[in-house]
Design a protein around this nucleic acid. Structure first.
Lengths: 337, 337
DNA sequence: TTGTACGCGTTATCAT
DNA sequence: ATGATAACGCGTACAA
């Protein structure tokens, strides 16, 4: 490997001079600088970031941990995070926990041993607490995305889940729906809890009755097996006229199930959900959704993180950004009145 | 930061002994090992991968560079790559070139300075040549994905683009279509060239006439502006009855355009394309496609890469994997006979 | 303006 | 079974 010493020898200067040329620090005569640069070119020199990291005690590496790389919400978010990181000269390591605590634990180990400068992460849920405490213990700055974790104080970017869910219920109620069921992610996830809460409040405000039977809790990720949800739906009597889904992936699973049961959307049942389904829809977007600003989650979260890293010694107050969801009315709701 | 010296001091052993415990190398008495382990626990010791990388001359980092993080083909591929990397104890750095040569160049710089152990990449196109030569010059093992680059010998995973395109034409021809147009990615991309070639051969085999007017070349990424493609379509006389799209994203763009023109698919015009649209489709998959094994691209490519890294000194012959595309017949083609 | 000595945290080599 | 020393490639502090 070509090192600064090889350059130094060939250019008849010291390694220090080469270092200064590379980093544009200190005073260097134009002649020396030109000579060193020429030799670097000739020898195809590339600085060794590993050595640099060791001495500088910073890697210029950031880590983004998401929970579902197949979900367009997270890929769009990743795009925002990547753009912001790049803008500030950081590189981005990348992981996908699959809503799985053990995979998340593995990634935390990687994060720690890699000595990344900071972490942007969507935690798997409340049980992620020890993972986050571990990051804190090791002084790794992090910003949470989309989900709060009780017991952790930190910078965070959230969507307005409660308000968004209420809007979805309002929309359904305005269309004349009275029996509205909800399919939601795990109650160990703060955003799922808030969506449920917003749903309940929306029901109450619209003077609709809520029953626990009308709630089905599962995972936010893709489902391998729809039979359990099928049994839930089977038992409902009377059938709901509409279903609110806690996120986009679940909405698709619900539609898959309805299809199996030969029920049409929205003729037989209406559907709304949180999060949009990404730009690459085969046909005109169909689902009525509370769309979140996925790109902004990543972009703003990353800016917060880098800001925090820049002032890691000061104890600035934690920042919390709450992004509103936008109701996009499309064709998955049937007017009943 | 807690180092092996801190552990060593507290455990009354040398740093070397601590290192041996960590890496399970050499002979250590059970008593010493237990003591060292206990101290490591107490002090929350985490090995410093940076220092390790410097001395071992390997980072255990791999890099995946794709061209469109919003495209489900690539996210699925990424998932495969990640799974394979993890299985072998590697971590994965991640970049998104956006089909853009300059972004690609930036990432090559990152790759070089980071001293990753290997790279898995979908090149932006033939002009990526100098970037790949740069990797070769610096002895960075890499595996190409989806696209060949003339002038570069290396391991590679390809889809059978020619055969896939021919199948799509066959399917259209069998449905009675005679005027088939093609919307394709840049001809500087090998897979786009092969798809065009497969299309032409398919036309010939089915005794259909091909005219250059019926070919529209653009970028494989999302289009900001459909007006140019609109003018192309406008000029066609007679109108094609079907369009073959070079990939999934372009197919969606074509459908967006047709929608603007109030043309229905497949009633007014039929559409087929390369690549599927991912698992999260709002409604039942609609497009008839030549589906590629996206996950396998990533998984097998990663295994090849790691295999290559393990034998980087030997000069084994380059491997080339060609994955077949599978025709999935759905509802975007109207039978004309 | 340029150079010397040292340290970042770890592992390999050689010694005991 | 354990330890001392050097080395990985670079940047900081200080000296010249």
């Amino acid at each position: 490997m070509v090192t600064i010493y090889d350059i130094a020898a060939k250019a008849n200067v010291s390694a220090m001079t080469v270092s200064r040329v590379i980093n544009n620090t200190g005073k260097i005569s134009d002649r020396t600088r030109a000579k060193v640069k020429r030799v670097m070119e000739e020898m195809n020199y590339v600085p060794n970031q590993t050595a640099r990291s060791l001495v500088l005690q910073q890697t210029k590496l950031l880590f983004l941990l998401i929970t579902d790389i197949m979900n367009p919400f997270y890929t769009t978010l990743a795009r925002g995070a990547e753009d912001a990181a790049k803008k500030h000269g950081y590189r981005l390591l990348f992981g996908n926990s699959d809503e799985n605590l053990e995979k998340e634990a593995d990634y935390v180990t990687t994060i720690l041993t890699t000595r990344v400068d900071g972490v942007l992460l969507a935690p798997a849920g409340d049980p992620s607490l020890p993972h986050l405490e571990s990051l804190q213990r090791h002084n790794v700055p992090f910003v949470l995305l989309d989900r709060e974790v009780p017991g952790i104080q930190c910078d965070i970017v959230l969507g307005d889940s409660k308000e968004g869910a209420r809007q979805l219920v309002d929309h359904l109620a305005a269309a004349g729906h009275r029996r509205i069921a909800i399919v939601n992610g795990s109650s160990s996830i703060s955003s799922a809890r808030l969506r449920l809460q917003g749903y309940k409040e929306g029901m109450k405000l619209n003077e609709l009755t809520y029953s626990d039977d009308y709630m089905y809790e599962t995972s936010f990720g893709s489902l391998n097996d729809l039979s359990d949800m099928d049994r839930w739906l089977e038992r409902l009597d009377p059938m709901p006229t509409a279903i609110l889904s806690g996120n986009n992936v679940l909405a698709v699973e619900v539609m898959r199930l309805l299809k199996q049961r030969n029920m049409r959307v929205p003729e037989d049942i209406s559907i709304v959900c949180f999060d949009d389904l990404g730009p690459h829809t085969e046909v005109e977007p169909f689902l009525t959704v509370a769309a979140q600003q996925a790109y902004q989650f990543g972009y703003m979260g990353m800016e917060m993180l880098i800001e925090r890293i820049g002032h890691r010694n000061e104890k600035r107050p934690w920042k919390k950004i709450v992004l509103p969801a936008e109701l996009l009315v499309r064709r998955s709701v049937r007017p009943l009145n």
